[in-house]
Amino acid sequence: MAPPAKKPLTKIVSHLLVVEPEKIYAMPDPTMPDGDIKALTTLCDLADRELVVIIGWAKHIPGFSTLSLADQMSLLQSAWMEILVLSIVFRSLPCEDEIVYAEDYVVDEEQARVSGLLDLHVAILPLVRRYKKLRMEKEEFLSNRLMKCSLLCPSPDSMHIENIEAVQRLQDSLHEALQDFEGQHPEDPRRAGKLLMTLPLLRQTATKAVQHFYSIKMQGKVPMHKLFLEMLEAK
């Protein structure tokens, strides 16, 4: 008997393959003295620019732009740090105990220690190890995109949403896409489930990162751009 034909990827997945944003770079200010203020300034600036990219990317997810503006805002305010952390984690997969904040900003434990990033480093590393165990590298291209979509659409009853049904429909279509993705891996039929099981650790890591940056904001020593501040305050 012929093996069953692979189910074609949903429109969502095939569309996401096209709209993945271009890489952005950290570009640390060469005139600043090395140290924690420089490192955190670099990261806050990077996060601000990545946020702009994430917002633009979210608008390309089929169905997202048809939600009310208030619901789009609620979903992004809820998921932005998880999406940022997930992007960092996927970039770090090929490395050994290094965190790739950007292609030009790769930090190992010693560098993290001297630049005040050790808390973040220690928080993110277990997530990198977890995805490495899942041998995520091979599927990085698709799974990263689908995961980011799933993050954008958590359970609508857990937050303030105007039109729960519309968000639910978006969530359903994303779950269908995840199932399609699973269909691409007949050797590992529980792959989508394993991916979803990583979400609690991702949430926990993102919460730590938000707390970290919020306390930095309260200290007032590191300049932060308005969008990043806005999103931190929304948390």
Partner: peptide
Amino acid sequence: KEKHKILHQLLQNSTSPVDL
């Protein structure tokens, strides 16, 4: 919305939303 002005603006300055 006033409090989240930039997010609001970025979402409103829509490049044509994708309709699949």
